[in-house]
Amino acid sequence: MDKDKNIVPKSGNLLISEPFLQDQNFVRSVVLLCENNEHGSFGLVLNKLSILKVRDLLDDLEFLDLEVYVGGPVEQNTLHFIYRGDAAIAGSVELAEDLYWGGDFDEFVTKYKLGQLDLDNFRFFIGYSGWAEGQLESELNDKTWIVSDHVDSKAIFQSSPEDLWRVALKKMGGDFQAIANYPIDPRLN
């Protein structure tokens, strides 16, 4: 595992919570890092499903019967999205091959209404995960997160929220495959 411990996280990496993290916001979470710079970091928890649908959050979009994930505990009055495939929305940021973050929401709605988008390739998030300057680095030093540059958009979109943490670790190979099988409570081992 030591070969990956000095990875400096960058946009498009995954932050995988260590197996015994007890912070309820991040237990067994996989965070897609969207920004990481000298001012701080911004990411979206990929595997924490909310009870909401997009239609519940936005007026005039009752046709959008898409699940909403909890992107994190910060500003849960904001809506974010990622998608996979080609760069279909102006203003999107490419995070990894075949994986994009955000873009012009009005363009998204227009293209959806015209039948130009496959909603199976979109995921919406309420709130986000944020770190102040130096905070993420401190958490990495405390071994709170495992950084992975093994981003697989197919796995992100096709794995169930309950399975994504294990899938992400297994894709890293080596010792991480064993970590994927750790119980949540080590006393149960």
Rank of each mutant, 00 (worst) to 15 (best):
G130I: 15
G130T: 15
G130Y: 15
W131E: 14
W131N: 14
W131V: 13
W131S: 13
W131Q: 14
A132T: 15
A132W: 14
A132Y: 15
A132L: 14
A132E: 15
E133T: 15
E133P: 09
E133C: 13
E133L: 13
G134A: 14
G134M: 13
G134Q: 15
Q135L: 07
Q135I: 07
L136I: 08
L136M: 12
L136T: 11
E137L: 12
E137H: 12
E137G: 14
S138D: 12
S138A: 13
S138C: 08
E139H: 12
E139Y: 14
E139V: 12
L140G: 08
L140T: 07
L140D: 08
N141A: 15
N141I: 15
D142H: 13
D142G: 13
D142V: 12
D142Q: 14
K143I: 13
K143M: 14
T144Q: 01
W145G: 04
I146A: 06
I146H: 06
V147A: 11
V147H: 11
V147Q: 11
S148M: 05
D149Y: 12
D149E: 11
D149M: 10
D149P: 08
D149N: 13
D149V: 08
H150Y: 10
H150L: 05
H150Q: 10
H150I: 06
V151H: 03
V151P: 00
V151L: 04
V151E: 04
D152C: 07
S153V: 03
S153K: 02
S153C: 04
S153Y: 05
A155I: 06
A155F: 06
A155E: 06
I156N: 05
I156L: 07
I156T: 06
F157E: 00
F157A: 00
F157G: 00
Q158L: 01
Q158F: 01
S159D: 05
S160N: 05
S160C: 04
S160Q: 07
S160F: 06
P161F: 09
E162D: 03
E162P: 00
E162F: 01
E162L: 01
D163L: 03
D163A: 06
D163P: 00
D163M: 03
L164F: 07
L164R: 08
W165V: 08
W165E: 09
W165M: 09
R166L: 02
V167E: 01
V167F: 03
V167P: 00
V167T: 02
V167S: 00
A168R: 01
A168T: 02
L169M: 01
L169D: 00
K170P: 01
K170L: 03
K170Y: 02
M172R: 04
M172H: 04
M172K: 05
M172S: 04
G173N: 09
G173P: 08
G173Q: 09
G173S: 09
G173T: 10
G174F: 05
D175Q: 10
D175M: 11
D175L: 12
D175R: 09
D175H: 08
F176M: 10
F176S: 08
F176V: 10
Q177G: 10
Q177A: 11
Q177N: 08
Q177T: 12
Q177D: 07
A178M: 05
A178V: 07
A178H: 02
A178I: 08
A178G: 03
I179A: 09
I179R: 03
I179V: 10
I179L: 10
A180Y: 03
A180W: 03
N181M: 12
N181L: 13
N181C: 11
